[in-house]
Structures are given as C-alpha cells and as structure tokens.
C-alpha cells in the first residue's frame, strides 16, 4: 500500500484525491500521515511537505489547492502533519477561526429577526470555508490537529478550543448515536448518521467519556457491518479502536482513492496501537 500511495504522487509533489486528478491539500496530508517515517518513501514525503508548504498563505492559513486564493479548513491538516514543529502562523489562524453562527454579530442579528437557531447550545467550532457555519469534518480534524500540538507543548488556549470542538461534536450527534455532516436535525426532522463521519467523530473524541458513548460505539459497529467504502471502514475501525473496541470483523472494500489507501494504512497503524492521528 505504501508503494501504491507513492506511485500516485503528482509531479508537483502533491497527491490527487483520485489517480490523474490535480493535487489537493487534503489527500496530500493524509498521504503524508500514512507514509510517516517509511524509509523508502522519504523522498516522496519531502516533496509532499514542500507542496503543502507552497499552499501556505500570508494570513497564516492554507489554501486547499494551488489555484485557490483563500485559506480554509485544510490549515488543520497542515498542523496535523507536523505537530512537533507547528507553523505558529497557521496555528494562530486556526485558533482565531469560528463558525459564523457563533459570532456575536450573527447571534444579535438572528435574535432581532426572531430566527431560532436549531443549535443555539453549540459552542464555537470550525467551518470548511471562511465566514460560513461550523460543520463536523473541519471541527473533528481541527480537534485532532490541536490535540497533537497540545501533547507536544501544552497551551491553555489550545486546550479550550479542543474542549469546545468536542462539545460541538456532541451537540451535533444524530439521534441514532452516530454523526453525519453536522446537521443532526433539520426543521425538527431527525437526520441519520454516516459511516465515515461517525468514525471520524469517535477518533476526535478519543480519551473522553462523553454521555451515551456506548450508543455511538454501537452505531459505529452497525455502520461497520454494512459499510461499502474503504474510507468509511477505515474511519470506523479507527473510531472503535480509539475507544478500546476491537471490531469483530472488518469488511473489505475496493480502494478507489488516495484517501482510501492512506486511511487504510492509518487504520492498520491503529490496530498496532500506533495511530499517528492520536500520537
């Protein structure tokens, strides 16, 4: 699998989501996490790091793609790939970021308009794109990035944002115990959870004992039993292991994307108790 990941690297040093596609920050970051310190891949790793660094913008954040002139949530992935020496500008950018729904201006405006927010209780978390609302994946990934930094050099600001992010995940948990893209209900209707986001949220909640976690783990096991995507299976496996559960059976699924391959490697590392996302 390591060879397969290296073979998919683009000439610019980045990785595409899928063979032949353009390089993006996200698959590049996951490829780097999967390759880790594999001796045979160090040249590819170095080129990948250079590609990610080339996406760094003056405001401290990272663009998701070379053509994009905006810093986005992928800044968390940049931190996640290099927690020992985090880019301070990128870290500050992340710590300043919140979903637009939690800004004072927005809350006052909604109050004046008489519009009720379905998630008023949710603490500040992270959006995909500036000036939009917070959602599950950017929040969970940022929590993972900040936790890696926190383990290296504790900082109360970072700790506070980790706690906020984890509380956000719990507020957005679906009634079935799992997680979807971050809308557990819409217009009062209960939404159902997805495999990949359920697994990711569980990884981001590792080390905590939130209420009703058993129900979430049971949902993850149900998802795993019928999951058909390599990405979903890998996240679910990592999520269960992050809470001390060993999956009874891990289904097979074709690896169609770089993310599929990279996450499968990370899931294997998790099985060896060496998940870099939690180290």
């Amino acid at each position: 699998m390591i060879e397969a990941i290296v073979s998919l690297q683009n000439r610019d040093g980045g990785w595409p989501y899928r063979r032949g596609g353009p390089s993006w920050a996200e698959p590049t970051a996951y490829a780097l996490l999967a390759l880790g310190d594999e001796a045979a891949a160090q040249q590819a790793v170095q080129r990948g790091r250079e590609f990610l660094a080339s996406l760094r913008r003056k405001d401290g954040g990272l663009a998701p793609h070379p053509a994009v002139e905006e810093s986005t949530w992928v800044t968390a992935l940049y931190i996640l790939t290099n927690p020992a020496q985090p880019d301070q500008g990128a870290l500050d950018w992340l710590l300043r970021r919140t979903g637009r729904e939690s800004t004072l201006l927005h809350r006052v405006r909604m109050k004046l308009l008489g519009v009720r927010d379905e998630y008023e209780a949710a603490p500040p978390a992270w959006p995909w794109y500036p000036d939009t609302a917070a959602w599950l994946v950017p929040t969970a990934v940022t929590v993972l990035a900040l936790r890696r930094v926190q383990r290296q050099r504790p900082d109360p600001r970072v700790e506070e944002r980790i706690r906020q992010g984890q509380r956000f995940l719990l507020v957005r948990r679906c009634a079935d115990g799992g997680w979807n893209h971050g809308a557990s209900r819409a217009l009062g209707f209960q939404s159902f959870s997805y495999p990949e986001t359920t697994g990711l949220a569980l990884v981001a909640l590792a080390g905590t004992q939130p209420p009703q976690i058993e129900r979430s783990l049971e949902m993850a096991e149900r998802h795993l039993a019928r999951c058909r995507s390599a990405e979903g299976i890998a996240w679910l496996e990592m999520g269960l292991r992050a809470h001390g559960r060993t999956p009874a059976r891990v289904p097979e699924a074709p690896a169609r994307t770089v993310m599929d391959l990279a996450l499968r490697v990370l899931a294997q590392r998790a099985a060896e108790r060496a998940n870099p996302l939690l180290s």
């Binding site: 996200e26 905006e70 986005t72 959006p127 794109y129 609302a133 994946v137 893209h181």
Partner: peptide
C-alpha cells in the same frame, strides 16, 4: 466541495 465543503455552506450564506 473540496473548496466550499460538505455542505456547500457558502451558497446558503
């Protein structure tokens, strides 16, 4: 989505 996210919340705002 790789730029604007899942959901493409920018369009909502």
């Amino acid at each position: 989505g790789a730029i604007y996210g899942w959901p493409k919340n920018l369009l909502h705002w």
